[in-house]
Structure formats: C-alpha cells, structure tokens
Simulated assay, not measured.
Amino acid sequence: MSSSSMNRYWIPQLDIHKKVITQELQYYLGPEATVRSFTRDGEDGFLITTPGPCLTDEQIDDICVKSKEMWEKQAAARSSGASTKVLKRPLHQPVVMSKAGGSDSARRRRENRRRNESRSRRDERRQN
C-alpha cells in the first residue's frame, strides 16, 4: 500500500515496553502495520502506521499488562545474578591462551635456566 493510504497514530509510551508493542502490533493490526519510537511535543511515545484503525483500548490494556510482565521478568533475571546467565553467544566465550604464573611462565623459566647453565659451562671451558 502507498504511504498516502496508511493511517498514522501516536500513543504515549507510558506503561508500554517497546519490545512488547513491536511483537504484538502486527498481531492486532495486520502485517502492514509498523511501530517506531516517536517524540510528540516533548513526550516519548510510539508512532503507529497502519492501513486501518489504531489499537483499541482493550488491545492497549493487553499490551500494558504484557509490558508489566516483561519488566517483572527482566527484574527477576537481574536479581537472580549474572552467575547463572547463559551467554547469548556461547561460541564467543574467552579461551585462555596463557595465564600469568601459569605453565607458560614455568616453561620459560626452565628454558632460561638451561640457557644460563649452558652459557656458564661454555664460559668455564673458555677460561680453562
């Protein structure tokens, strides 16, 4: 549809989680409906573009309830601690290549000791 046949509506952001309205909008208004953050007269909200009417009061109430649930889930996840948090990208976990004082350091010390002993023996032979 052309943009001239689309209706645009603004609703305030109050009690609405952006992720929830983004996920729910097309369910309520159809696949052509879009939503984006928009500030109108200094107030944050959402600009909804749709070929038909805007959300009903009941649909907005439903989005507000789902938004509250989303915020509660996020708060619970934060309070449970990061130790149980699963990485979104498990393939990007750090891999230890060397640690200070680890086996690489011990190996280097042994090699340096051997080199120094070899030099000492060489120097002794030269002196004799």
Rank of each mutant, 00 (worst) to 15 (best):
E24P: 08
M70E: 12
D15V: 00
Y28T: 01
P51T: 14
R109V: 02
S4Q: 03
V20S: 07
L47A: 11
S105L: 13
I60M: 11
R122I: 02
R113Y: 06
C64R: 15
K68D: 04
S2V: 13
K99V: 00
Y9C: 04
S105T: 08
T22Q: 15
F38I: 00
T34V: 06
I11Y: 03
L47H: 03
S83C: 08
A100K: 14
R119P: 01
M97W: 14
M97N: 09
D41E: 13
R36L: 07
E111L: 12
M1A: 10
S118A: 10
Q23M: 07
N7P: 11
Q23N: 07
S80K: 14
Y28P: 02
R108G: 04
S67Y: 12
R121D: 12
E43T: 04
L87D: 13
K68C: 01
P51E: 08
W10L: 05
S5C: 09
V96H: 07
V35R: 06
A82L: 15
G81I: 03
R113F: 08
P51S: 15
E111H: 08
Q13V: 04
W71H: 04
L25K: 04
T56Q: 02
E32F: 03
L47W: 04
R121H: 10
Q59E: 10
V35F: 09
I48M: 10
L87K: 03
T50P: 00
D57P: 09
R108H: 09
S2Y: 14
M6E: 10
V86N: 01
M97F: 13
E43M: 12
W71D: 14
I60A: 01
S5A: 10
R108F: 06
E69F: 08
T56V: 08
S79A: 12
M1P: 13
Q59C: 08
P90A: 11
V95T: 15
E69Y: 11
R122W: 11
G45I: 07
S37A: 12
V20Y: 06
P12D: 15
T84W: 10
E111T: 05
A100F: 11
R89T: 09
S103L: 02
Q74Y: 00
T56R: 04
K73G: 02
T34Q: 13
V86C: 04
R8Q: 08
T49D: 05
E58W: 07
L87I: 08
E32W: 02
S2G: 13
C54F: 06
R119I: 11
H17Y: 13
Y28N: 03
Q23Y: 00
S103D: 15
K99H: 06
W71Q: 09
L25T: 09
R108M: 14
S105Y: 01
N116A: 10
I21Q: 07
